[in-house]
Computed example of a mutant assay.
Amino acid sequence: MTTTDQPSRGELIARLNAAGRELSTAAVMFHSALAQLHGLSSTEEKAIDLLQRFGPLTARELGEHSGLAPASVTGLVDRLQRKGFARRIPNPADKRSVLIEAPEGPAEALAPHFEHFMSGMEELYARYSDAELATITGFLTAGAAVQHEATARLTAALPGSRPGGGEPVLTQSQKLTVQTAGHGVVALMAAADPGAFSSARAGMAAGKALSSATGLTGRVLAEKPKRLKLGGHSTADLADQVFPALTASVALLGDIDPGEAENFRSAIRVVVDAAMRTRNPASPAAIAMAAKIGDALDGA
């Protein structure tokens, strides 16, 4: 082939872009099919892959590896946990945060589907020299970094991102969870003692304490709650709303910022203490309710 028969650099780049698009489409279709077989989305399946490759990760680290915004990571982990493909565990290096890991059994169920694919890739690798494989590896690694940055840019404007590096933004659903937990604890402490006068005093003291919360927690609780409906026919009905919200609030705030999860815990404990101080002596019902709230915070 003469020099004039060689494709120009522009033509080579055009062919490379076309081949890259073909590879990207093939990868998306493969992982979509694999995910669908196990009741997952493509994003969920790739998150499991990250957890298998890197081991337990914090939500922040999972976001860094995936390029997803904090709120997207929170929802992603919640979905994986419900489906049994991920779980939150204590972080031995930082008691204020949690790690996310992929349980071995469910995650390993994906492995057999890769055997035929990887066999084909091994045959493909054999066509290239070590030097060529090193060049291809370098190109793919750099290309992944470029696409990772592009993903981060796309997710930067989503709820839960930090515009300009500022405070994370919660979705309305996440705000409602935190507000249900905060205002619900006030209602629970007021309802713990059936006496009308003592209930009113406890509710007022707890509400005042709630309004003193600071940070992201304080700003969310200070907003006028939208669609917040607390109550039911009994204290048990109210508790069924509040305790899951307490656990979920600690988890979602911890995923965004472990320090904010601890701030939330502190704010709720201040609310409980304020309500307890209005009763002298505190009734057995109030003591029991305070203990249950404390246990929920400690176990979250």
Rank of each mutant, 00 (worst) to 15 (best):
H31G: 02
D193S: 02
N17V: 12
A111V: 13
T217P: 07
M204G: 03
A267E: 00
L133W: 02
L154N: 12
S66E: 06
T137R: 14
R277V: 13
A69Q: 13
T171N: 01
R265W: 00
K229F: 14
L12W: 06
A26F: 05
E115Y: 14
V220L: 09
K46H: 09
G160E: 02
H31T: 04
A205S: 11
R269H: 05
E104Y: 10
E149A: 14
E11S: 10
G63P: 02
L76D: 01
I136M: 15
A200M: 12
K292C: 00
P244E: 07
L16A: 15
R162Q: 12
L158E: 11
A209L: 05
A47S: 08
E115T: 14
E44W: 04
A157E: 14
H65R: 15
R87G: 03
I48H: 03
Q172E: 14
E101N: 01
L62H: 04
A187R: 12
A282W: 01
L51N: 07
L216F: 07
A275F: 07
M121W: 11
G84H: 09
M118Y: 11
R269A: 09
V77E: 02
V73H: 05
Y128T: 10
G254M: 02
L253P: 03
L37C: 07
H38E: 13
E22R: 11
A71I: 06
A126N: 09
E108N: 11
V250Q: 00
A107V: 09
T58S: 15
I287W: 00
A71M: 10
A209H: 08
I13D: 08
A27N: 09
D49C: 09
R127A: 08
A111L: 12
Q241F: 03
R279Y: 08
V178I: 12
L210T: 01
T235H: 00
G259M: 01
A71K: 08
L40R: 09
P106W: 11
P284V: 01
R127M: 10
A19R: 12
R277D: 10
F30D: 04
I100R: 05
D298C: 02
G207F: 06
E45S: 14
G184A: 00
A190Q: 07
D237V: 01
L51C: 10
V98E: 13
H65V: 09
A187T: 00
S41F: 06
G259K: 07
E61Q: 15
